[in-house]
Amino acid sequence: MAATKHALVAMVADKPGVLNRIASLFRRRGFNIESIAVGHSEMPKVSRMTIVVDGATTQVEQVRKQLEKVVDVIKVIDVTGEGTIIRELAIIKVKTTTANRSEIIQIVDIFRANIVDVSSDSVAIEVTGDEEKVNSLYKLLRGFGIIEIARTGVIAMTRGGAGSSMINKKQPKSRTRNKKKE
């Protein structure tokens, strides 16, 4: 991710309307969101969101605090930095001809991406990696003609054995706490 970008991980109650509350907050405060990805967490009834904001245009600490004010948001941590695994998945559908198909396959191999669908005049490529990797692959493929692209938005996790859970209480005993920024 670009130096100014921050990944915020938010643990939120899995309740109807939570996404709405968060989206409404971003809109109303004029926060510029680069991407948002939501899924289950390791805890029941708790979802995990990864939100990427650009620190150059948005006050990241304000975003974090305002998010934490939402009652259904349990905890928000800025996980930006060295010790963070950042991944995004994209599916890119590219125009192909018999002439250029092998060239495309080569690029796919270099990027350790996968071809997940082939037709007479197109291929669909699945790629996983950080944003830069997805972006560079996209740039290389652009010359062939992109039909469509779908990106999940990034998800993030800190490296090492430090606890995945950021909820202090009511968690199975063995979990270590993430002390960073607490």
């Binding site: 109650a13 259904d72 905890k75 909820i167 209480k169 009511k170």
Partner: peptide, 8 residues
């Protein structure tokens, strides 16, 4: 007699 609001 108690609330359960982990996010608050």
């Amino acid at each position: 007699n108690k609330v359960n609001l982990p996010g608050y």
